[in-house]
Design a protein around this nucleic acid. Structure first.
Lengths: 115, 115
DNA sequence: AAAAATACCTTGACAGGCGAGGTATCTCGT
DNA sequence: ACGAGATACCTCGCCTGTCAAGGTATTTTT
């Protein structure tokens, strides 16, 4: 089973912030970590990923710097800011709330009446 | 705490299908039920709701008919089809999967190393 | 030197959510 | 009877996030 993109829409930024709480990292590697976390079931498309980085940086939730010690091409590293940590805590709460809501809304059983 | 719209995007159709497994119903009432299920925390905007009905009907997941026995204005009732029930079963599975994925991705603790 | 991998970035099209605005019917107070 | 408000449905146009496609630069492998 694969995950539709719209299903995770709205969680993109939260997922990235979560990854960055583990330490600074760069885009490609972050996405690989996400794929690992989900046993290959989900990863961002590049365009989505870099759009999200830009959005998060403009919001002040992450900052970035160039690192040049890697084996491959140049890498832009991202770090979560204080504001980002606060946002992440909020987003985790929101996810708890959303999960409860959707459980209530989607898992309705048709045990109302006749059969 | 309020729920951001994007967070539920992609679940709109599923929520409506779930409501219709309880029996035929019309738009306004469906939305009221959703508000009840969530203790007033979440309901669709009208534009979103009717867009979704149209989308679901075009997909063959629901059918509609006019009912005229109500106390207020005319009502358009919706009924879930066989295809809709199948879709709903699928969507429930997808939700289970999505929930597991997001739990794994969002609830990462920063217990990796130093402090 | 060519190919492949790593790594980053932009553009344009598309789809869903929704503010704003519109229509019709019924009920209630005066 | 009249206006206000509730019920109920519908549409238009904007905004935002996703992503296919295409592009750039560096390093390693052949």
């Amino acid at each position: 089973m694969s995950i539709s993109a719209d299903t995770l829409r709205g969680h993109t930024d939260t997922i990235i912030l979560a990854q960055l709480t583990r330490g600074d990292n760069y885009g490609y590697e972050i996405n690989k970590n996400i794929l690992e976390c989900t046993q290959g079931e989900y990863g961002f498309k590049e365009a989505t990923l870099y759009t999200a980085f830009k959005r998060l940086e403009q919001a002040g939730y992450i900052s970035s710097y160039w690192g040049d010690d890697g084996p491959g091409a140049r890498r832009r590293y991202y770090a979560i800011t204080e504001a980002g940590r606060k946002r992440w805590a909020e987003a985790r709460q929101e996810w708890e709330n959303t999960r409860a809501l959707l459980d209530a809304l989607i898992s309705i059983e048709e045990d109302q009446s006749n059969g």
